[in-house]
Amino acid sequence: MTEILRVEHLKKSYDGFLAVNDVSFSVAKGELKALIGPNGAGKSTCFNMLMGQLKPTAGTVWLDDKKITGLRPREIWRRGVGRTFQITGTYPSMTVIENVQMALMSHHRKLYAIAPRAWRLYRDEAFEFLKTVEMEDQADRPCSVLAYGDLKRLELAIALCHRPRLLLMDEPTAGMAPSARIALMQLVADIVRVQGVSVLFTEHDMDVVFAHSHHIMVLNRGELITEGSAEEVRNDARVQEVYLGGGTLFAEAQNA
């Protein structure tokens, strides 16, 4: 398998505190990979360094063998990386579909246009993306009234707009009902399968993680402690220790 993303010795220090410490891994094309770990492990910090929101203290990020460390988020986005945030960032003064249209306007490089009416542009295309995340019936609602889970799905639709090759998702199912979580991850898995997108995601819900990821990495206190298949990770003693010092956390998942 060829890899799309490679991370080497990534490090982030806040006044001496190492939020991310010497993390190296790679994501292969078409892979659905999970990055898990307890609260404060450094997952979001990692994501922010991959997409350029944060500057790493040290380390390199390669996208298709091109170095992208130090680039701005918008430049990395133009190279085909999309992301969703742990705390959603949408445009509350726009409707749901306009949120998607906005990303499409950016993708089609229409940001400086002053002649066309924005709400007419790429409406059909945006509608298709909303359908993908099953939000089409809410297309014309103001984004500010959406439930949190719906905001997460809207963010996914936005992130899909420029047909990314790599998708980074920070806790994509937080705030959703259990059934909705499975459905959303099924959808992501379908996108991976059909479009060949690679996905790196973080998640606290182990059902979701074990059901959908091809490969799991475990981060603790800024360091990668292990990685492997669901089975391997589940039975890893260090992982069990990290998660409350026992195997109880995975009991459900094993029974499921």
Partner: peptide, 12 residues
């Protein structure tokens, strides 16, 4: 509305 999202979708 959201500079973070805007920057993450190609808007300068």
């Amino acid at each position: 509305d959201s500079p973070r999202q805007a920057e993450a979708t190609g808007i300068d």
